[in-house]
Amino acid sequence: MINKTVENARQALQGVQDGMTLMLGGFGLCGIPENSIQELLRLGVKNLTCISNNAGVDDFGIGLLLQQHQVKKMISSYVGENAEFERQLLSGELEVDLIPQGTLAERIRAGGAGIPAFFTPAGFGTEVGEGKETREFDGKMYLMESWLRADFSFVKAWKGDTAGNLIYKGTARNFNPMMATAGKITVAEVEELVPAGELDPNMIHTPGIFVQRIFEGKNYEKRIEQRTVRTA
């Protein structure tokens, strides 16, 4: 079996350069590639276009890249938890493309699946639809949306094997599986890396063909945005 293992984030991110388009998995702070983000901070690469459902919070996740002004453009669906983001956006320092969440997920899926465009009803008649081709199917109007692809995709999984197969846990799955398919180079960081053969092939969420580099991440903080509990 082809071995996709690299030692650490530093090796995994070799080749990341200024001006690249990156995908980063996660929903809120759930399922984000924490180790890869730390390495992006260390590298200090700039003028990045980041495709991610959210932009982290002020002091965690992609918010850290925004603080260092490494991001030129964000492509996201919801950025409401990040005050620094809103400040950079309203002051014109940052470009943003806000995309309906389902459209974002499908554009990434399409990118990985080799489908350059598709039609969706989301955003028809709104400013999201301005300038886009529209078409009627069975009496309903749809917008044409195009694929998204990235120079590097950074995904986070629960378990992975040396062949690059991935299993996610809970709602940390979110955008990670589609992003894994849409990167020219996909870097997977996992909580537990095992030899090929130890994961049940029936249980694999992302097959290893989509993953070019895999490593076991360190020191996961897994910060919770809204800790809501009930009394037992």
Binding site: F27, G170, T171, A172, Q226, V229, R230
Partner: peptide, 27 residues
């Protein structure tokens, strides 16, 4: 919409799992 059908109640303190949130980012 973040990827769960059959959303249950908030967890007890012992059940809190950072990998289990809803679309409002609540555990």
């Amino acid at each position: 919409e973040n990827g769960l059908l059959g959303m249950g109640p908030f967890p007890t303190e012992e059940q809190v799992d950072a990998d289990m949130i809803n679309a409002g980012k609540q555990t």
